[in-house]
Design a binder for these strands. Structure first.
Lengths: 195, 195
DNA sequence: ACCTGGGCTTAACCCAGGTTAAGGCGGCCT
DNA sequence: AGGCCGCCTTAACCTGGGTTAAGCCCAGGT
């Protein structure tokens, strides 16, 4: 087994026999990405995804007007990919970019589909993943509905302490749905109040 | 089969043998709800869900400050329930309320779990449901990140034309994440521009 | 040592949406 | 009929965040 830590992490979601994990490992390809390099770019077929071995990634959507908003940050052990587009068989509208030099374990979606035929644990895992993703998005929805930008910022650091110092402030702003100028204001407001 | 239309609707998501649907039907209980009646209230165990037979429902989250925001509207053929809480085994933080006199087909979550042991179609259905829910929430997230309130309103009516005339404006506002005053302003602004 | 560029901050001004409060309008009850 | 209630509108004022633009700081490259 080449990636025992990753196996642990994933098997925590659902019972996953080591033998099945080994079958997946041989289908995977390790990929190194420089800082700023894209794992996926808009227009690419959304037929692959990756597990982050090293680094922090951001999933970005570029709007029609050219503004970019950030759907998620992903660090070690987490999944990267254009999940919604994959489910719908559409090309990616998301780009996934390394914020630091990183490494991912890349899979072809069709390879995993093939494994599903061999053992029910993979379908079960796919379900768990969908459910977890749903829970996170619903939490985010609630934050947009109920919280001000300042409160969302506070939550963000509570929920993502491991990203501290690893993601530029402008990207945090794009995640919160505000501009970097507004975020800078909020931060300095808080700084003053803290004195 | 008591609910052939519902069966069609659900079988469209994933192949579902009629024999399995019949097993589910006998576990279900039809429930009538008056206007304003609650299918689920905050604090209830999130161990049941329903299929809407008739009526429009809203899923409401009441914040700590007492403001209510609306997570979703659900009409005929759609699912109601505190889905995220159910997945996490938590009590409901959502209340689900009939906007009109309505009827739902109610299931116990544990009954459906029992069916899963008997046939793989149920696990497959659960996965599809999770994936569909995810896709919807991601779409909503994108709307909050990229669109103004006015643009979100326009999208809302594009995506939910069947709700026209069935949901009060204040609830649309609570769905968009703005106040009813702001929504009224937007509507009259648009009215003027249209002349 | 100097320049450059990337990322952050600050300031000035504007506008969308929040807040509060005062009606308006129609349906429903007695 | 009259009165009440639920829902929507309008207005006045306030505030948070957007926009634009200038400047700062520092790491890296020459």
């Amino acid at each position: 087994m080449r990636y025992p830590k990753l196996f642990e992490h994933i098997a925590a979601l659902t019972p996953l026999p080591a033998s099945e994990w080994l079958k997946a490992e041989v289908l995977a390809r390790e990929q190194a990405l420089d800082k700023r390099a894209l794992f996926l770019r808009p227009g690419d077929p959304a037929d692959r995804f990756g597990l982050v071995l090293q680094g922090v990634f951001r999933a970005v959507r570029v709007s029609a007007r050219g503004e970019e908003s950030i759907k998620a940050f992903r660090a070690e052990g987490e999944l990267i990919g254009a999940y919604a587009e994959m489910l719908q068989g559409q090309p990616s509208m998301t780009s996934i970019e390394a914020l630091e030099p990183g490494r991912v374990l890349a899979f072809q979606a069709r390879d995993l589909q093939a494994l599903e035929a061999g053992h029910p644990c993979w379908a079960q895992l796919a379900r768990r993943v969908a459910e977890q993703h749903y829970i996170l998005k619903e939490r985010r929805e609630q934050e947009f509905l109920d919280l001000s930008a300042e409160e969302r910022l506070e939550r963000f650091w509570q929920e993502h302490p491991h990203l501290h110092g690893r993601v530029p402030q402008r990207d945090v702003a794009a995640y919160l749905g505000i501009t970097e100028v507004a975020l800078s204001r909020i931060v300095s407001r808080r700084r003053k109040r803290a004195e």
